[in-house]
Design a protein around this nucleic acid. Structure first.
Lengths: 227, 227
DNA sequence: CGACCATTTGATATGGATCAAGCGATGTGG
DNA sequence: CCACATCGCTTGATCCATATCAAATGGTCG
């Protein structure tokens, strides 16, 4: 029903902590990244699965990541996309509530959750930061809910504006994800996403030089569509 | 476009902190409720508005509360329903991202946010609790997202199961909210909600003795619909 | 070049929205 | 105590946005 995710040998991808990060943070707030290791993941590789114990916290170094759930009949809902600098996989309970996969080849900084929690009990700044990350996720989820009650045009417009805001304020967006990923994020079909983009291009609101690259030609119009 | 919310004099409802709560908590974790005041709100009274400074944190003592956003064209999305015991209005930034209203006459425990934040910097248990509350909200939002991609039947079934789980594990639910509230929570129209309930009643999955009271007759069927 | 996969485009079907009555409970004034 | 207005909910008829089914196009890699 949905594009099959390439199955890649898990154990080879997930066990080895590849290179230690020797960085020492300048600000206290960055202490969260003090002890971590960067791991590479291949396109479509699973980073963690729903219901697995949440042992680690992750930060995208390069590439992009999606989190998702699959309903029992195969419908997939993407919870969020994570771009370089974004943190994901933070859970307060000890199980992941979504699965996470690499959208493209990527590098991810992996940090031990238990160490962070321990640190947070001693260092208030760390505790605040963990809280703030959860709050950021909550904000994202609320925006997502607001997207899902809108029309197809509004959802696509909102998605494009969100991506533009996150990947530098440029008018040119490089999309790391497929149309299917976008569709599953917006609660639409791949055909509707494609048609909507075509429509926006025809009405000169965007340009689509290649399928993964989108130029915003008329932000005002997009914002108006964003309701 | 949507049922008009009765306008009730705000200042008379929001200013007075009515009776101080002298309670002393037994567990440290409850310290959050140490200093608060119980305030009554009338049906449809605004508790706070979107974009207002988030000075307080609230806990439902009795009655029920809805949070919502209104898009510029009038569409309303309800973010969540809060029942006795639930906490709402917690923000990490200092502005509310939703508005909150009393669904029915209710009593709400009101706590000063600044005091809690201050307390959290000294007391780790409090900090953890604030974090956990935000995480609970995140969980709720994720469930809500998963609801919004489903069919009308599935959304209604999911809603009923959620309400049943929250209001005692009984098979009889007393709904504090109107069909319009349910519709705006589920991203459906009032007509579709009504028709779907009728359908479920006809197929003997539920009974609807009065419009605000629903009996779950066949949980297995509901769970199956819940996908 | 040819196979494969992602994307677009076209034709048709359908679930839920919209428009429009009807119905039952609750409350109000005569 | 009853007539009647009001409000929340249900039911009916029709429409439309998006899904579904199907095929064509285009880009990438061996």
């Amino acid at each position: 029903m949905y594009t099959q995710t390439a199955m890649i040998n898990r154990s080879s991808l997930r066990q080895p902590a590849l290179r230690l990060v020797p960085q020492v943070s300048s600000r206290m707030g960055d202490s969260i990244e003090m002890m971590g290791a960067v791991m590479p993941f291949g396109r479509n590789a699973e980073i963690y699965g729903e219901n697995e114990p949440a042992e680690y916290l992750y930060k995208v170094v390069s590439g992009a990541v999606r989190t998702y759930k699959v309903l029992n009949d195969g419908r997939r809902q993407i919870g969020a996309f994570y771009l370089p600098g974004d943190i994901f996989g933070l859970e307060v309970c000890d199980e992941h509530t979504f699965s996470a996969e690499a959208i493209a080849d990527c590098k991810v900084l992996v940090m031990k959750r238990s160490a962070l929690i321990a640190l947070a009990t001693r260092d208030n700044a760390v505790a605040q930061q963990l809280w703030a990350m959860t709050a950021t996720e909550l904000q994202r989820a609320h925006n997502h809910i607001m997207l899902l009650i809108k029309t197809a045009q509004e959802r696509v417009a909102g998605f494009l504006l969100e991506m533009a805001a996150r990947s530098g304020a440029s008018n040119e967006i490089e999309l790391p994800m497929s149309r299917q990923d976008i569709a599953d994020y917006l609660g639409l079909t791949i055909e509707t996403v494609s048609r909507t983009l075509t429509q926006l291009e025809i009405s000169a609101v965007i340009a689509v030089p290649t399928s993964r690259r989108i130029v915003l030609r008329n932000r005002a119009a997009l914002s108006r569509l964003n309701a």
